[in-house]
Amino acid sequence: MQLEEVPRVGNISKESFLNDYFRPQKPVVIKGAIEKWPAYTKWNLDYMREVAGSKIVPLYDDRPVDHRDGFNEPHARMPMTDYIDLLKSKPTRYRIFLWNILKEVPQLQSDFEYPDFGLRLMKALPMLFFGGRDSYTFMHYDIDLANIFHFHFEGEKEILLFPQTENRVLYKVPHSLIAHEGIDFSAPDFEAWPALKYARGFKTYLSHGDVLYMPEGYWHYMRYLTPGFSMSLRAIARNPRNLSKAFYNLLIMRSYDNLMRRWKGQSWIDWKNQQAIERTHKGISPSVF
Rank of each mutant, 00 (worst) to 15 (best):
P240S: 08
Q266E: 15
A237N: 00
E181P: 03
K90W: 03
N11G: 02
L206A: 08
I183T: 09
F153I: 07
F117T: 03
F289L: 10
T137Q: 11
G132Y: 03
A235W: 03
Y47K: 00
P188S: 11
S285T: 12
L233S: 06
L128H: 02
H208G: 02
E154H: 11
T165R: 12
Q275W: 04
D189Y: 12
L250A: 13
K42M: 10
H281C: 02
T204G: 03
L259G: 11
L102E: 10
M122L: 15
K90E: 15
L86M: 15
V9Q: 04
R120L: 13
R223Q: 13
Y224G: 03
M222C: 07
W37M: 10
I101W: 06
V51M: 02
A52G: 13
G70A: 08
Q109Y: 06
L128V: 12
V211G: 10
D189N: 15
H150R: 05
Y213V: 04
L243S: 10
R200C: 01
T92W: 02
S287V: 15
I84H: 12
P79C: 00
L212C: 03
M127C: 09
H75W: 00
L225W: 06
Y83C: 01
D184M: 04
Y256P: 07
F138R: 13
Q2G: 00
D69Q: 13
S186A: 14
L177C: 11
G265N: 13
I183G: 05
Q275G: 10
K203W: 01
S287Q: 14
L177P: 01
F162G: 12
S135F: 11
S89C: 04
G182S: 09
G131Y: 08
I236V: 14
G182E: 15
S230R: 06
F71K: 10
T280P: 13
F190W: 05
P188F: 06
D210T: 13
H150V: 11
F129E: 05
D257V: 11
S230W: 09
R241L: 14
K31P: 00
R120V: 14
K272T: 00
G209V: 06
G10R: 12
W263T: 13
K264R: 11
Y213G: 07
A187M: 11
I159R: 02
F247W: 14
P79I: 01
Y213D: 06
G155N: 04
F117Y: 13
H175I: 14
E278K: 14
D69V: 04
V65H: 01
D144T: 12
G217Q: 11
H208E: 06
A276C: 12
E154A: 12
D210R: 06
E4S: 10
F151W: 07
E35T: 15
D116K: 00
I30P: 01
R234N: 08
L125K: 01
W271G: 02
S16K: 05
L121Q: 01
P38I: 10
L145E: 04
S244T: 12
D20C: 09
H152N: 14
Y114S: 04
T92L: 09
V57S: 01
Y83D: 03
S255I: 11
N273F: 08
R200L: 01
T165M: 02
Y21V: 07
T81F: 03
E4H: 11
S255G: 10
R254T: 14
M80D: 01
G265C: 12
L170A: 12
E15V: 15
